[in-house]
Amino acid sequence: MPQFVIERNMPGVGKSSAADMQQASRASCNVLRELGPDVQWVHSYVTDDKIYCVYRAPDEELIREHAQKTGLPADSIAQVRRIIDPTTAD
Protein backbone atom coordinates (compact mmCIF):
# COMPACT_ATOMS: atom_id res chain seq x y z
CA MET A 1 0.00 0.00 0.00
CA PRO A 2 1.33 3.50 -0.77
CA GLN A 3 2.89 5.42 2.07
CA PHE A 4 2.53 9.18 2.60
CA VAL A 5 4.16 11.88 4.70
CA ILE A 6 1.75 14.52 6.00
CA GLU A 7 3.00 17.89 7.20
CA ARG A 8 0.74 19.56 9.75
CA ASN A 9 1.52 23.19 10.62
CA MET A 10 0.53 23.54 14.28
CA PRO A 11 2.33 26.45 15.98
CA GLY A 12 3.44 25.56 19.51
CA VAL A 13 2.52 21.88 19.24
CA GLY A 14 5.89 20.83 20.63
CA LYS A 15 4.89 22.31 23.98
CA SER A 16 1.69 20.23 24.18
CA SER A 17 1.25 18.11 27.27
CA ALA A 18 1.29 14.33 27.24
CA ALA A 19 -2.44 14.42 27.98
CA ASP A 20 -3.05 16.67 24.94
CA MET A 21 -1.07 14.30 22.73
CA GLN A 22 -3.00 11.34 24.10
CA GLN A 23 -6.32 13.04 23.42
CA ALA A 24 -5.31 13.94 19.85
CA SER A 25 -4.08 10.39 19.25
CA ARG A 26 -7.35 8.92 20.51
CA ALA A 27 -9.37 11.23 18.26
CA SER A 28 -7.24 10.21 15.29
CA CYS A 29 -7.60 6.50 16.09
CA ASN A 30 -11.38 6.83 16.43
CA VAL A 31 -11.62 8.32 12.93
CA LEU A 32 -9.26 5.66 11.56
CA ARG A 33 -11.59 2.95 12.92
CA GLU A 34 -14.53 4.72 11.28
CA LEU A 35 -12.74 4.91 7.91
CA GLY A 36 -11.77 1.24 7.98
CA PRO A 37 -8.57 -0.71 7.39
CA ASP A 38 -7.57 1.04 4.15
CA VAL A 39 -5.90 3.90 6.03
CA GLN A 40 -3.24 3.28 8.68
CA TRP A 41 -1.28 5.66 10.86
CA VAL A 42 2.32 4.43 11.15
CA HIS A 43 3.83 7.11 13.43
CA SER A 44 4.41 10.85 13.76
CA TYR A 45 7.28 13.20 14.56
CA VAL A 46 6.38 16.21 16.72
CA THR A 47 8.60 19.28 16.36
CA ASP A 48 8.17 22.76 17.84
CA ASP A 49 5.59 23.96 15.32
CA LYS A 50 4.75 20.98 13.11
CA ILE A 51 3.80 17.34 13.16
CA TYR A 52 5.07 15.07 10.40
CA CYS A 53 2.92 11.95 10.11
CA VAL A 54 3.54 8.75 8.16
CA TYR A 55 0.39 7.04 6.90
CA ARG A 56 -0.44 4.15 4.59
CA ALA A 57 -3.46 4.58 2.33
CA PRO A 58 -4.52 3.72 -1.20
CA ASP A 59 -4.64 7.43 -2.11
CA GLU A 60 -4.25 10.97 -0.84
CA GLU A 61 -8.01 11.55 -0.72
CA LEU A 62 -8.51 9.12 2.17
CA ILE A 63 -5.81 10.94 4.14
CA ARG A 64 -7.53 14.28 3.46
CA GLU A 65 -10.84 12.79 4.65
CA HIS A 66 -9.17 11.65 7.88
CA ALA A 67 -7.70 15.14 8.43
CA GLN A 68 -11.05 16.80 7.79
CA LYS A 69 -12.89 14.49 10.20
CA THR A 70 -10.30 14.92 12.96
CA GLY A 71 -10.01 18.68 12.47
CA LEU A 72 -6.24 18.37 12.00
CA PRO A 73 -4.50 20.31 9.24
CA ALA A 74 -2.94 18.47 6.32
CA ASP A 75 -0.91 21.29 4.83
CA SER A 76 1.20 19.03 2.65
CA ILE A 77 0.76 15.39 1.65
CA ALA A 78 3.54 13.68 -0.30
CA GLN A 79 3.67 10.08 -1.45
CA VAL A 80 6.84 8.26 -0.44
CA ARG A 81 8.55 6.98 -3.57
CA ARG A 82 11.51 5.27 -1.92
CA ILE A 83 12.99 4.73 1.52
CA ILE A 84 16.72 4.99 2.00
CA ASP A 85 18.93 4.60 5.05
CA PRO A 86 22.63 4.13 5.78
CA THR A 87 22.53 0.60 4.34
CA THR A 88 21.61 2.09 0.95
CA ALA A 89 25.25 3.19 0.67
CA ASP A 90 26.47 -0.43 0.69
Rank of each mutant, 00 (worst) to 15 (best):
I6R: 02
S17C: 01
A24S: 15
T47C: 10
Y52E: 05
I51E: 03
G36C: 13
M10K: 01
R56F: 03
P11T: 13
I77F: 10
Q68C: 03
I63K: 09
V31A: 02
A74V: 02
P73K: 08
D38C: 05
E61H: 00
A67M: 04
V31E: 06
Y52P: 11
G12Q: 06
M1Y: 15
R8A: 03
E61N: 04
E61P: 00
W41H: 07
V80Y: 08
T88A: 08
Q23M: 14
V13I: 14
K50G: 05
D49E: 06
S17G: 03
A18F: 05
D20M: 15
F4I: 08
L72R: 01
E34F: 09
A67R: 01
P58A: 14
A57R: 01
S76N: 14
Q3Y: 04
I51G: 01
D48G: 11
V39Y: 04
D59N: 15
V46L: 14
P86E: 09
G36F: 03
R26A: 14
G14E: 05
V46R: 12
A24F: 11
Q3E: 08
Q79V: 08
I51S: 04
F4W: 09
I84G: 09
V54G: 00
D20P: 06
P2W: 12
C29Q: 12
A67N: 05
G36E: 03
T47A: 13
K15L: 04
R33Q: 12
D49I: 11
G14L: 14
P86H: 07
Q68S: 12
T88F: 02
I77A: 03
V54F: 10
I51F: 01
H66Q: 11
A57T: 00
A78S: 12
R64P: 00
E34D: 13
M10R: 03
G71C: 02
M1P: 14
A18R: 06
D48S: 12
I83W: 13
A27G: 10
V80L: 04
G12R: 06
Q22Y: 12
D90M: 02
P11A: 05
A78N: 14
M10S: 05
S44I: 00
H66C: 04
E61C: 00
R8Q: 13
A78V: 15
Y45F: 12
I77P: 05
H43R: 11
C29M: 13
I83F: 07
R64L: 14
V13W: 10
T87Q: 07
E7G: 02
V5C: 06
T87A: 08
D38W: 02
E60I: 01
E34I: 01
A18K: 11
R8Y: 02
S28M: 12
A67V: 03
D38R: 15
Q68I: 05
I63E: 06
Q40H: 08
D20C: 07
V13K: 07
I6Q: 02
A57N: 01
P73A: 11
I83L: 13
V31L: 08
E7N: 04
Q68N: 04
S17H: 10
V39C: 07
M21A: 10
